[in-house]
Design a protein around this nucleic acid. Structure first.
Lengths: 355, 355
DNA sequence: TGATTTTATGCAAGCGGTTGCGTTATTTTC
DNA sequence: GAAAATAACGCAACCGCTTGCATAAAATCA
């Protein structure tokens, strides 16, 4: 079933059919209605390849995932983000090609492939192992693209980024713990990436600002896995009584730590308050439920898509980006649950309001 | 950069370039090499739309996910499967359009859309809310497609299905528990879907076959969530001493149950052995680590892709499926961990060998 | 050496849409 | 009432690639 078939049925020319289906104002109201009726009666759908060949728009965007996407901790968080993104894109009738950054067998860069073959109108790069090469490539080609979830390393990067402010995330955890009277916190990090570091920095900075001694915050280094956190706690079990709070930079490590703590008879939150990060589904499943930092992933997904659509429109109209690149930092919020909740002091005494 | 450009540079005709790049035997070795060199020097990639318009092959397949994909328990398992599938497809240089079955805003059926617009060469349907309508549609159009992870409801369905045998999964759990001397098992189901029921049936059948009384297996009904399992255990806490084993039909419920058990001072596995299902990353993260049924998702992904490629080839050659539809059931295997491990009896006394 | 096959390349017609421009019929304007 | 503007539609070129068929050159054969 092609335009030609519809044209024959309707007894008009092929171009009239095309215009009718695209709601062109050049066509009279009756013919348009008549043709649209015929088309939908026959279940006509335009051939996507033919259309994009003619219009050089594909109606598809590329969602590029980092190589380590299948690591468990990332899986939980990213899969949710991923779904939110697709949901956002379907509002604009865009299909989504999901790809890893590199094809593992042909070693081809999927970004370059999708772009030069003109399979996509734009790209969403999720937590990319950002390399200057890809960015330069995309900029040279004036391809619409946005980045998600990566605190940029320069103040005003040439691209659009949407990320959840890790530093603030760490800070609001610290404020909450100070609020409930925890003055000897232990912190478990995940790695040396900026994201993990910033969470710890925000945490540490807030403790510094509270006037407590410099060395108040103890930091141990894990690798995002539950096992690593469990091992760390296990090794430091004899000193664990020195701490009254535990902040893990992701929920999974909080979980691993809690396992060992409880196995050792340490009560949560009475003996030690525990806070995680990412507010994954794990947080509510745990007993006691886990206080965690919720990242506004739905909002990030929504805004990133909106922006991408803008960029696509600009490109079809002017051939390139017109508006300036923006770096958008979204604020995470703390979800207080049992793992720190019941220790909470009645009311703030020092005016630092953590919401 | 198009074929025409390359042709001008090489001083040949456009069709010679096309044939050279497609390794047609009609072209002499030298010209082919020369043209390929020029093309790759200029980073030429063929326009995907133009090529598929000419060949009616898109180099893209559609991966259709069920609506409830973002439910937590499914997320864990499916996201892993999903990654495995994409990895398998990239071996064949196929891109993947990922879509939910229905567009939530336009209410359009994405299967029909992707197929009639000719955006994909074939489809992989993951745990579809299988409806006769879609199947009939795909069959009429002779579209290559395979189903994953759905025990078919008829013995010889007209499509290709790959699934993990739930019944056997339940059975091997029971055999293991019998092996380690558990004679009073409690079972927590997830829902009324065939998948959940079959896991329980396999479990129950194996216990029946062991010669124990009919009512040996107690079954409680949850909803796949950790909270539901926790609630069930909580309600039945006073009777829990009657049981020496707990089988949950997914890891998440095993997790929820374990939380309550431990909070109540019940030891795992000494007082009660616990077994989950799906062998998600949760299983190794738990303390004690969770015995669970591992589904061969990598193998399923691999076989499903292989088969889909066959179907696509058949269709391009003959216009329709030639080979008969096969139902492929893959065998899950039990991964024994701490939550049931240390209770294990030294050697089998009755010859039922659980591997 | 002329006729026939083989080999290498070019021509041109699609694939199924979109869209600028031309044509015809109908209104509007003075 | 004739000229100009407007409205509705058709023609045909084009998007970039593939491929059947024609052609020319080289190789093989009688």
């Amino acid at each position: 079933m092609t335009l030609k078939d519809i044209a024959e049925i309707a007894g008009t020319s092929l171009s009239t059919v095309s215009r009718s289906l695209n709601n062109s104002p050049l066509i009279s109201e009756e013919t348009r209605a008549r043709i649209q009726a015929i088309a939908s009666a026959h279940g006509f759908q335009p051939n996507a390849s033919a259309r994009s060949l003619a219009t050089s728009r594909t109606g598809t965007i590329g969602l590029i995932l980092p190589e380590n996407y299948d690591r468990f901790d990332g899986l939980l968080y990213n899969a949710a983000l991923h779904n939110d993104l697709r949901r956002s894109l379907e509002r604009a009738e865009l299909d989504t090609i999901v790809a890893f950054k590199q094809n593992r067998v042909s070693r081809q860069d999927n970004i370059e492939k999708l772009v030069t073959r003109k399979k996509v109108d734009g790209l969403i790069l999720v937590q990319p192992d950002i390399d200057r090469k890809s960015v330069r490539f995309l900029e040279e080609r004036t391809i619409p693209y946005v980045l998600i979830q990566y605190p940029p390393d320069e103040p005003n990067p040439p691209y659009d980024v949407f990320y959840s402010d890790s530093w603030t995330g760490g800070r609001i955890v610290a404020q909450h713990l100070l609020d409930i009277g925890c003055h000897r916190p232990l912190c478990i990090t995940g790695g040396q990436e900026r994201q993990s570091r910033q969470r710890v920095d925000g945490f540490r900075d807030a403790y510094k600002a509270s006037g407590l001694p410099e060395d108040t915050v103890t930091v141990l280094h894990g690798d995002y896995s539950a096992a690593s956190a469990a091992a760390l706690i296990h090794e430091n079990l004899e000193n664990i009584g020195n701490y009254d709070a535990l902040f893990a930079v992701n929920d999974l490590m909080a979980f691993g730590a809690m396992e060992v703590l409880r196995a050792s008879g340490i009560r949560i939150p009475e003996d030690i308050a525990v806070v995680g990060f990412d507010d994954t589904a794990l947080a509510t499943a745990l007993i006691p439920s886990l206080t965690s930092v919720h990242q506004p992933e739905e909002e990030i997904a929504f805004l990133a898509c909106e922006r991408l659509l803008e960029l696509i429109d600009e490109r079809t109209e002017f051939g390139r980006r017109i508006s300036e690149a923006r770096t958008t930092s979204l604020q995470p919020r703390l979800v207080i649950r049992e793992s720190s909740g019941s220790r909470r002091k009645p009311a703030a005494s020092d005016g630092t309001g953590a919401s």
